[in-house]
Amino acid sequence: METSIDPSFSNTSYETSAPVIRFDNVGMRYDQGPEVLRDLSFDLPRGSFQFLTGPSGAGKTSLLRLIYLAARPSSGRISFFGRDTATLSREELPHLRRRIGVVFQEFRLLNHLSVFDNAALPLRVAGKKRSDYAEDVAELLAWVGLGDKMKANPATLSGGEQQRVAIARAVVAQPEILIADEPTGNVDSEMAMRLLRLFVELNKLGTTIIFATHDLQLVRLLDAPVMSLAEGHVHIRAPRSQRQAEYQRAEDEAAAGHREAFEDIGRPPLDSPDGAERDE
């Protein structure tokens, strides 16, 4: 897969000490069933780009449901923008959701509305006037290659086109957090690259991205941390550059240690007259 994406895109200008999402020992179970997520603890810094991978049944969908506020944890604490979700009232919930955009794997488009009205839905429910957002929505749809299908019914579109409508709907209100569940699962590699570039651009503008995917080729394209879920537990792998730097640092430290050891072997005792002379 060819790419023109700069792997060192990582945006730092929005990073602050407070993470946008914090999980503290979060567990989740459905009704009285077994725990599908266990003891998850992690922070997502503002403006970060995070891949989420894991095999089917690992709890990826459950984790995403917690992150897009469609479910509550069974245990532990989740905070958004420093606010514990357990303290959120029902009236506050929609306002927090408006700061989060979601691209669903199964799209969840409203087939009785046009492509344009689907993409504009977050702006419409937020009470914005059609005349204020019409141009922006049209431009966004044109950008994702659906400019000539704005009047179409989503049910008449291909899977890839529906995916792009779902992405347009998720990003149209410029959310602070964007959650994408397999957003490139139904598109060809060229469109996958284009969409990934869109996510990268949004990330550069400060949006925190959580990108769930099975496509490891896509993961390798970016120098971003990877959150792996397996059997309800999470493991976070640092970005490649950070790992390489750490490896390099460790290697340097080890080399320095070896050098010192080698030097120590041939070095006379410090208190000998020869040694004192050589030091001089």
Binding site: L110, L113, D117, E135, V137, A138, G147, M150, K151
Partner: peptide
């Protein structure tokens, strides 16, 4: 936009329900 923006759906906000 070079593309024609569709007119609002009939039925106002009520059209959000199928």
């Amino acid at each position: 936009s070079e593309f024609e923006i569709p007119p609002p759906p009939k039925g106002g906000a009520g059209a959000l329900l199928p």
